[in-house]
Amino acid sequence: MSMRTTPGIRLLPNAITVLAMCAGLSAVQFALEGNLRGSVAAVAVAAVLDALDGRVARMLDATTRMGAELDSLSDSISFGVAPALTIYAWQLQHNRIGWVIALVFAVCMVLRLARFNTLLDDTEQPSYAKEFFVGVPAPAAGLLAMLPIIVTAHAERPGWWSEPVVIMVWMVAIAALAVSRVPTLSLKTIKVPPKAAVPLLVLVVVLAGGIILFPLFSLATALVVYLLHIPYATYRKRWLASHPEAWEAPPRERRAIRRRTQRRLGLRPPLRRRVAGAARRVRLPRRNSHPDGPRRSWRRLELRRDRFPR
Rank of each mutant, 00 (worst) to 15 (best):
Q262S: 00
K188R: 13
L200S: 11
V225D: 03
R115H: 03
G34Q: 01
L187S: 09
S242K: 10
P251F: 04
N14L: 07
A141F: 03
K130Q: 10
F105T: 01
S74P: 06
I16M: 02
A68M: 06
V43E: 01
A51H: 05
R287A: 11
F79S: 08
L187H: 02
L203R: 06
I9Q: 06
S39I: 00
G142A: 06
R255L: 11
S78L: 09
H243I: 02
V151A: 12
H154V: 08
D292T: 05
K237P: 02
L119M: 11
A176R: 06
V172L: 07
P164W: 10
V43I: 02
T86H: 00
L240M: 07
A175G: 13
Q29P: 00
A241N: 02
L85P: 02
G266F: 06
A68C: 04
D61W: 01
L219K: 10
L177M: 14
T152D: 08
L49P: 13
K188L: 03
R295T: 11
I167L: 04
L120S: 13
G98H: 08
R287P: 09
I101G: 03
A153C: 04
N288R: 10
A47G: 06
A155R: 15
L60D: 09
A42I: 00
E302M: 15
A141I: 00
V192R: 05
A51R: 01
N117R: 08
F105S: 01
E253L: 09
V165I: 04
P183D: 12
E156K: 02
V172P: 13
K195E: 14
R286P: 12
T221Y: 12
G80E: 00
V43M: 05
I230E: 11
T118C: 11
D75T: 12
D50C: 03
V275G: 11
L201P: 13
S78M: 07
S180F: 12
S127C: 02
P309N: 04
T63L: 13
H94V: 00
P309H: 08
A233I: 11
A46I: 01
A278G: 10
R112H: 07
T64S: 15
L284N: 07
A42Q: 00
G135Y: 06
R300A: 15
A62F: 06
A20K: 04
E124Q: 14
L227I: 07
A23S: 15
Y235P: 01
G98P: 04
E248Q: 02
A175R: 03
Q93S: 03
R295S: 12
L265H: 03
Y88W: 15
L201H: 14
P13D: 08
A82C: 05
M21P: 00
R4F: 13
